[in-house]
Design a protein around this nucleic acid. Structure first.
Length: 544
RNA sequence: GCCCACGUAGCUCAGCUGGAUAGAGCAACGGACUUCUAAUCCGUAGGUCAGAGGUUCGAAUCCUCUCGUGGGUACCA
């Protein structure tokens, strides 16, 4: 509808011989300002050297001349020169019925149709349980993936992990050391080792299976592998509790096995982007606009994380994705520019990669900040949180804030508020909508598509309609902005409008015609609310 | 030092590509359930949008500087 207003306004400007390139139509925040508004008169004021008020008058007059189809029910000049548009209500009513027909499809868009997207997120190495800190990336990634799917993309959710590097080696050693202790050997447990209880658990598991027969094992990889498998099961089960399943796990080891690491080194070499210094192989980042050169292969012969990252991202292009999303925590902020620069050097288009950086989650417990470290095992696990407050609350908590803000997660409040949480505000709204429909059915009122929607005369009703019809454009916008919070804000505002309406008006009354009309409205907003909640992965209960 | 984020009510945060009187929730205070579930609604109070300049018809939003917070600047990931 916004586009239609835009067209009409542009047409009018052409008739008046005014420039049309800077036309902006905005949604009105304040209902007194109509359904849409435009600042065009103020923009043109400078160009035409005329007062905005005068320009606005001319435009409005011409608009009325061209309004033979009664598209606009009113157009007014206001404030410093805004033009406010009020649309014919019949237009909205037609759309309302369309929502009912679309049902579960309402809000979906096809702008990504035929395109494929890869969303890489979580990507935590299997050295310990997922922490609350990982939760944010997990929920952002999953929701972004949902958003892309709703826009027609074929989406692959991918988890990249590293089981070849130093961290994993230390993990294996940690388990081995615990195992020796379990076998009764008295030795000091190295401070550098992973300290968590789960290490003991794994060691005991191994002990129960093999007794002390592995004490002099010459193959420590066994301990590493066992730990990796155990921890990965734990990670997957945490994610599953949040309704999250990955389509693909990409293992760094594959990059070595398939020769892709060596291959990209050769490619960089032939592009003159690497050199040897101090027994290490360096990446000449400064040559392609980076601040400093970085080590790609240490003097031990082991690559740094940067090299496999490059090779890995190259595979994303080789696999033919039209869009690649990387969800990283702020601690990875320095790794991706090198990767993107290399991608461009290799002849790919790095614009297809969108890197979403989310700031850290600060955990507060008993009024104090908890410093998280997997190795030191002073983390709060995602599992504990889910068990405490439930999956819906966890999901909501992690996407309700903009990803660029530092999220303050007060565990005490999260627990205290678990039954007073903002997510329930949305769910309760949905439950109320469903309840109305069910109650109505009990009184013999079913949805009557021939209802006279002209009876929806209240401002509150018009506002609900206005907003619900904006869901599709919002979802499209999200596929560009990639910010789940926009959906959350929308739903919260929507629920608020509904609760307000609910408190002031009754849907089921003795007035059959009015009841029919309002039921259509309720059904439409119930569809919008349910679809919105589904989009962000939160349950839409029919009763609470 | 340099690079990237962020700084809005007592607290946690919104504020859409610059727009009309800066908004919610929590906490405080006062109201509303014989009426579709009060997990709700209504009202009161609470602000130098970190600070200073600049851009313009118009700035919380864009630019510059200062201060503060977090992150990065590893032959850790």
């Amino acid at each position: 509808m916004r586009n239609k207003v835009l067209e009409k306004l542009q047409g009018t400007l052409v008739e008046l011989n005014f420039p049309t390139d800077t036309v902006i139509i905005q949604n009105s925040k304040n209902p007194d300002h109509g359904d849409f508004s435009s600042n065009i008169a103020m923009i043109l004021s400078g160009k035409l050297k005329q007062p905005p008020q005068k320009i606005a008058d001319e435009i409005i007059q011409k608009l009325f001349e061209l309004n033979s189809d009664n598209f606009f029910s009113n157009v007014e000049k206001a404030g410093p020169g805004f033009i406010n548009f009020k649309l014919n209500k019949n237009l909205f009513h037609g759309k309302l019925l369309h929502v009912l027909k679309s049902d579960t499809e309402f809000g979906k868009s096809s702008i990504g149709k035929g395109k494929s997207a890869n969303v890489e997120f979580v990507s935590a190495n299997p050295t310990g349980p997922l922490t609350v800190g990982h939760g944010r990336g997990a929920m952002l990634g999953d929701t972004v993936a949902n958003i892309l799917e709703w826009n027609g993309y074929k989406v692959q959710r991918e988890y990249y992990f590293n089981n070849a590097g130093r961290q994993m080696r230390v993990l294996g050693q940690s388990v081995y050391s615990r195992y020796l202790k379990t076998c009764g050997q008295d030795l000091k447990f190295d401070d550098e080792f992973y300290q968590g209880e789960y290490i003991k658990e794994i060691a005991e598991l191994i002990f129960n299976e093999f007794g002390d027969s592995l004490m002099s094992d010459q193959n420590p990889d066994y301990f590493k592998d066992k730990a990796e498998k155990f921890i990965f099961e734990d990670i997957k089960s945490s994610l599953k509790k949040l309704g999250l399943e990955f389509d693909h796990f990409y293992n760094e080891q594959e990059l070595y096995n398939s020769g892709k690491i060596q291959h990209i080194l050769d490619e960089l070499d032939s592009n003159g982007l690497i050199y040897q210094k101090d027994d290490a192989t360096w990446f000449k980042g400064t040559q392609i606009g980076r601040d400093v050169d970085k080590v790609l292969v240490k003097k031990t012969g082991e690559p740094t994380y940067r090299l496999p990252d490059m090779a890995y991202h190259k595979t994303k292009f080789e696999r033919g994705f039209d869009l690649c999303i990387d969800v990283f925590g702020a601690d990875h902020i320095d790794t991706y520019p090198d990767v993107l620069a290399v991608i461009d050097q290799l002849g790919y288009d790095s614009n297809k990669v969108k890197v979403l950086i989310h700031q850290f989650v600060t955990i507060m417990k008993n009024g104090e900040q908890v410093k998280m470290s997997t190795r030191k095992a002073n983390f709060v696990t995602l599992d504990e949180l889910i068990d405490e407050v439930g999956a819906d609350v966890v999901r909501y908590f992690f996407i309700m804030r903009g990803m660029s803000t530092h999220l303050n997660f007060d565990l005490d409040i999260a627990k205290d508020q678990s039954d007073n949480n903002p997510v329930f505000y949305l769910q309760y709204a949905h439950a109320r909508m469903c309840n109305i429909i069910n109650r109505a059915k009990g009184f013999g009122h079913t949805i009557n598509l021939k209802a006279d929607l002209g009876l929806l005369k209240e401002d509150e009703e018009q506002q609900l309609i206005n907003q619900l019809l904006k869901l599709p454009e919002l979802i499209e916008k999200c596929s560009i902005q990639l910010e789940p919070q926009l959906i959350v804000n929308f739903l919260h505002e929507f629920a608020s409008k509904f609760h307000k309406y609910y408190a002031h008006f009754k849907v089921i009354t003795d007035d059959k015609k009015l009841t029919d009309a309002r039921l259509i409205l309720i059904k439409a907003i119930q569809i919008a609310m349910r679809n919105g909640l589904t989009l962000i992965g939160i349950n839409a209960p029919e009763r609470m």
